[in-house]
Nucleic acid binder design. Structure first.
Ligand SMILES: [Mn+2]
Ligand SMILES: [Mn+2]
Ligand SMILES: [Zn+2]
Ligand SMILES: [Zn+2]
Lengths: 171, 171
DNA sequence: TTGTTCCTGACAACTATTGCTGATAAAGTG
DNA sequence: CACTTTATCAGCAATAGTTGTCAGGAACAA
């Protein structure tokens, strides 16, 4: 992602106004490689500016995405993730337990020649279990400040001996 | 996916009861390669049994998933998709406009050796535009019975000359 | 048949995200 | 700096997809 100054200039050049709230979002994202959720960004921004609303963070993230300064990713963990690294092509590891997302260098296969479909980009998601969740595999736990991946269902009693664990290890 | 008879036996073997509603879902999924949404399954089932509730369809789909008879996929189109093809490994084309999802044969890259992460499976998503949406690219339209991909945001006036189109071509 | 367990259907609740709106603040102009 | 013109802010309401709850009713086993 570009620097806060560059983003400020770019926003103005596009007729967008630059407010302290937006700059706080810029600062939080610059050099952030944790793929934070919007909620996480909001929490971080509120540490400095306690009145900023979640709505404002969503707006700013969308504006950044429109300018191509971040990617908004939905990998099926229930919340979108913001990726400020748009310069270098890369893919992701996704922890199926806590939703944690890390960059990974794998070469994507070439988009296949498919009649009736114009391929634009190829996304690779490596799903698995992160170290923190692996360590906590014994039973559910909850890291401080972490949110929990949506992983529920009524399913009264039978519970056919499949995953039931739940853990969180978001940084 | 297995046949309706096999699924019936398998459900019973696992202590799950087999009702007309569940069999209607089985029937709708057997040999279905459209990756229907739960809502679409519901609509299809209601054509024969108008009283079946959406909740029941969700339950049945989840039970099928737990037995490994279907895969429930979330590719970020706002609704989960049900894939009855669990026998052969494959990946997907996803239309960014209408959410349509088709099978594609691409070889996934080998899961990289990443310390601190136990990779379990690699998912490849080829995003692009399907033929129907390509044809309708001139302006928004709405196919009969189709649902629309969530693609909105207030964003008052400025509209920085980016995508605004919206189209639907779900079968 | 009878009892037990599970499923159904209707509706409420929940979560992530977006819509709405008066008040406010950023740019632009002199 | 004073002033005008917009775009943004914060808060709250609304929405969509999915899941929780629970009182009947149906399916299976004996
Ligand atoms: Mn990344
Ligand atoms: Mn498929
Ligand atoms: Zn994890
Ligand atoms: Zn399409």
């Amino acid at each position: 992602m570009k620097s806060v100054e560059e983003l400020t200039a770019r926003f103005r050049a596009h007729g967008l106004r630059v407010t302290p709230q937006r700059q706080a979002v810029f600062r939080l994202l610059a050099g952030n490689d944790t793929h934070p959720t919007v909620e996480a960004i909001h929490a971080g921004v509120r540490a400095e500016m306690p009145t900023v609303s979640l709505r404002t963070v969503y707006q700013t993230v969308h504006d950044l995405a429109r300018l191509g300064e971040v990617h908004v990713l939905d990998v099926g963990t229930g919340q979108v993730r913001v990726d400020p690294n748009v310069e270098e092509a890369h893919h992701h590891l996704v922890c199926t337990r806590c939703g944690r997302m890390d960059d990974v260098a794998v070469e994507a296969p070439a988009p296949p020649a498919t009649p009736g479909f114009r391929a634009e980009r190829v996304e690779v998601i490596v799903r698995g279990t992160c170290a923190a969740c692996e360590a906590a595999a014994g039973g559910p736990h909850r890291a401080p400040g972490g949110a929990t991946v949506r992983r529920t269902e009524h399913e009264t009693a039978h519970e056919t001996a499949h995953e039931t664990q739940e853990a969180t290890c978001r940084s």
